[in-house]
Design a protein around this nucleic acid. Structure first.
Lengths: 273, 273
DNA sequence: TGACCTTTGTCGATTTTTGAAGATTGTTTG
DNA sequence: CAAACAATCTTCAAAAATCGACAAAGGTCA
């Protein structure tokens, strides 16, 4: 084992087990504690970790995946992916679409990675990055004040910017939904932004997992009648299903399919043992 | 066995077994260790591998993603961090500052994580996220077209948005610098954006590592006289140092040891003197 | 043959690893 | 709060591994 590779492994160990101390790292990599200290100090000089008493913490670059964005992604993943895959069917090559910064919208973005020449507007970093990966797409990120937790922007720098845009389909989620108040959002800024973007979109596609029905949050931003299609998961109650049908809302209930590897994106392989 | 073929084979071995050291490669190819050393050094000169103590690591086979944030991040890290730590001294609580999407500017952002109530404008995702981590800061991300590789935006949605802002200090890097053309940038969009933001900033702080001097890229965006302070690393040539002094440019040559503890990302410890 | 390149072994210099001693830090206990 | 203890840190020195440089040996081709 050469030095460089051992240090790379050390970083991976540290990512999996941030609580490991020097002695545990030494045992995991089968070298002396002094060597681990050398390695950690060397990695510190490279700016990869910060040394603390008893061990080290990974520095920002590797840490970016450890914010609240990812934890949001792990909640109810199967339902969100089911919704995303169905909703993605609505998008064709060359479409102009809008996504909010929600994790469900991000999964839609992942599901249309094979589409070409899309024109995309979004306020989510991850969604923007995922779609910009494809060279033929033109992805616009809405400027504004940054929310660290959500990796998104909401407070608009300029109201005008959005009004000058136009998209065919807007894919929006919400934190609560009722027939009376429509789609509601916990945060004022987010609701404000969504209300804005609805005006520039031809069709409003609602991505609402079953847990949101009956919840009413602070700020409403879209009336139920304005929804072009509503996607939800199979856990929706019969009662709500009927209620939505009675209100003439175009409802799509998405079956959870076998999506084996997707949850495991965040898991790292453990080479040490 | 022709030399050229053996080197190709060596690359394949290295791909299969990245953890192989010199002696293992020598055994695998049935030549002496000295020959392996020759081969690895030759391959390094071709840019195919990077030599590390005890062996070598393969590097980017696809030169297309050359400008990505991650690869930029790893280049010349020590110099960039040195520059960042010195430049960070200019920032006080409550300041309004602007950063470009460069990795050096990102390091500055990391170095001011303890500052409070900053008002920040940037077009880099990583920089934005890092600074937004601190609740007391207000971070604005400039909206625009997304560059996947750089994790940034450049094509502006609206020229007006920037003109309505004001910052005290703008921290900008560049891909080339000369006294005649000033700061230059390879990509047109980026130069365009930087030219814009210079107008809304009181002071232009240039972050230019020593490798950039004498390079002139396509698009100039800031004249040398307009630079308020220029930070570079200690590898700058005496010749260039003199030239900048003659031009009355406020030059700061950054050396890691001179920074007080509380402003450091990490300490460079001297272990083997 | 003789010029040129590659390979190989050797040698001192450098880097890495490791263990030990003493200093420092963090925690527990009275 | 302070003393006592444990864990961890830095420093140092020695051993091991590796490096670069050089020169000798071997091969190729005009």
């Amino acid at each position: 084992m050469i030095t460089h590779n051992r240090r790379q492994q050390l970083l991976e160990v540290l990512q999996d087990r941030p609580d490991f101390g020097i002695s545990e790292m030494a045992k995991a990599l089968k070298v002396s504690q002094g060597t681990i200290r050398n390695d950690l100090n060397a990695l510190q000089d490279e700016g990869r970790v910060k040394r603390v008493h008893g061990g080290a913490v990974l520095l920002n670059r590797n840490n970016t995946s450890n914010n609240s964005f990812d934890t949001r992604y792990d909640q109810n993943t199967a339902a969100k992916i089911a919704i995303a895959q169905q909703a993605a069917q609505l998008i064709s090559d060359g479409d102009s679409v809008l996504f909010d910064a929600s994790s469900t919208a991000y999964y839609v973005a992942c599901a249309i990675s094979h589409r070409k020449e899309l024109r995309v507007v979004t306020n989510g970093f991850h969604t923007a990055n995922e779609l910009a990966r494809n060279d033929s797409n033109r992805v616009a990120l809405i400027g504004g004040m940054v929310n660290f937790g959500a990796s998104s922007v909401t407070g608009l720098l300029s109201e005008q910017v959005i009004e000058d845009l136009y998209v065919q389909k807007a894919f929006l989620s919400c934190s609560g939904f009722s027939l009376e108040r429509g789609m509601t959002e916990l945060h004022l800024n987010e609701a404000h932004l969504k209300r804005k973007v609805i005006h520039i979109a031809d069709q409003l596609i609602a991505l609402i997992d079953s847990s949101k029905f009956g919840k009413e949050d602070l700020t409403p931003f879209a009336r139920a009648e304005g929804i072009y299609k509503l996607f939800t998961d199979q856990n929706i109650s019969k009662e709500w299903e009927q209620r939505l049908l009675d209100a003439s809302i175009d409802l799509v209930i998405c079956d959870e399919q076998e999506v084996p590897d997707h949850d495991q994106i965040h898991l790292k392989t453990k080479r040490y043992i």
